[in-house]
Design a protein around this nucleic acid. Structure first.
Length: 422
DNA sequence: ATCACGGTTTGCA
DNA sequence: CTAACGTGCAAACCGTGAT
């Protein structure tokens, strides 16, 4: 059993560089939604000590000094580049799990490659040539180990971007695992790492050799699975088909403080429309929805107000219009004037698959006509771009919309963005 | 004492 | 000029009322 984890290096920054090669060799960051935090860093920026997830305003001085170039995130571009990469990789193996926008697992069992390290190099070469993106490849017996192998391929230059843990002599392997902090393990985050350290478990090797049963009692099942995976037994299966979500959340911070109900109405309508899209995409209906609004969580000088409301739906629905109507009703109930709201969102829950749904005695079932309408809406928006056809209640000026002060053109998804002669 | 539930917190990526 | 800090998901946890 061998699994490969292919992960793009500094993915968002690398995408920007593909279409703007002048950025190569320069310190570049990509910012999160609303230009809030640093979410991707070029190696030059990492070398300057800028940490992942730092609020951008806190790096402004350093950025000024070193001429760091900052881009707002351009999801249309990254999603398109991701699709290209995933399609290429998917063709190399009968089983692929797309784990996130920039990484996927491949089951190598079905790949008749004589030498997996060479196979990894071929992958790197092909992705570089066909998309312009740099990737690293980790290979091992389980997903957890493949993640770790990928980490080594990235951090240690002598691997040249490919690390096959199974091809490594056991002595050397233990030696390397000894030198990696336990917090690098997949599933061990900033909370668990210190707790493990209290027990004397500091390195990956320590965790690998820990007793799964006792750590399960102290922590959870997932901890036991992680330990077993580190020892080469598969506990976390490759999931080719993502299981349908149990809840769907859409929320955003505003580009500026919002005080008026009519603006919140627009934002909630927008978020609910997106949530309903996701809902229909996974072929579910929602049995309940949740609306929330909140003031800033960092600004302690301002009066705080957080509120939310969960509303059961009379019968499960996937109709944007019905969901929006209920959400706005809920919003009106929780809205208080006189606050500077910074964020709003919705959540759909009690999700049921479209097959075998229970009807309601007192509520009209969703009509075939409504289903057809939603289908058409989704079809147009998929083809012509997000939000081509939408509810007017989403508003037009959208003064609450997130900040994106410096976004690159969407080269691969908008004709107008191509720098052709006009 | 135990269970199902719903809401909240925790944790991760 | 100033103020400014992301999102989505699930599991664990906890209090409550019913059994």
């Amino acid at each position: 059993m061998s699994i490969a984890l292919i992960d793009c290096n500094n993915f968002y920054v690398s995408c920007e560089r593909v279409f703007n090669p002048r950025l190569c060799g320069k310190p570049v960051v990509v910012l999160s939604n609303n230009d809030g935090c640093v979410v991707a860093r070029s190696n030059e920026v990492k070398a300057l000590g800028v940490k992942m997830g730092v609020p951008w305003f806190k790096c402004r001085d350093l950025a000024q000094q070193h001429g760091i170039l900052a881009y707002s995130s351009n999801y249309a571009l990254y999603a398109d580049m991701s699709n290209r990469v995933m399609r290429i990789l998917g063709a190399l193996s009968p089983a692929q799990e797309v784990y996130s926008i920039d990484e996927c697992f491949l089951d190598l069992a079905g790949c008749h490659a004589p030498n997996f390290t060479q196979f990894g190099q071929d992958i790197r070469q092909r992705i570089a040539q066909w998309t312009g993106l740099p990737v690293c490849v980790g290979i091992a017996a389980t997903k957890t180990l493949a993640k770790l192998a990928n980490h080594m391929a990235k951090k240690q230059a002598q691997f040249a971007g490919v690390c096959d843990l199974d091809a490594m002599p056991p002595g050397e392997r233990d030696d390397r695992l000894q030198r990696i902090a336990v917090g690098e393990v997949w599933g061990i985050g900033p909370r668990l790492a210190p707790k493990l350290a209290d027990l004397g478990i500091r390195s990956v090797l320590d965790l690998q050799r820990a007793d799964p049963a006792s750590l399960r009692r102290r922590f959870s099942v997932s901890m036991e699975k992680t330990i077993r995976e580190l020892n080469g037994s598969v506990c976390i299966a490759l999931e080719e088909m993502a299981p349908p979500r149990q809840q769907i959340v859409c929320s955003r911070s505003f580009g500026r403080p919002v005080t008026e109900l009519h603006e919140l109405n627009e934002a909630i309508t927008h978020h609910m429309s997106r949530a309903a899209e996701k809902l229909r995409q996974q072929q579910s209906h929602a049995g309940a929805l949740h609306v929330f609004i909140r003031t800033g969580e960092f600004n302690r000088a301002e009066p705080t107000y957080n509120n939310s409301l969960t509303l059961p739906l009379p019968s499960p629905s996937d109709d944007t219009r019905k969901l929006v109507r209920v959400a706005l009703w809920g919003l009106k109930r929780i809205y208080r004037s006189g606050y500077r709201y910074r964020k709003a969102g919705v959540m759909l829950s009690v999700l049921a698959s479209n097959q075998g749904m229970q009807g309601d005695l007192f509520d009209a079932p969703e009509t075939a006509q409504a289903a057809k309408l939603m289908q058409t809406l989704d079809c147009i928006n998929r083809r012509m771009g997000m939000g081509t056809v939408r509810l007017a209640a989403e508003g037009f000026s959208q003064r609450w919309h997130m900040r994106r002060s410096s976004m690159s053109p969407s080269y691969t998804t908008r004709w107008e963005a191509l720098p052709l002669a006009s």
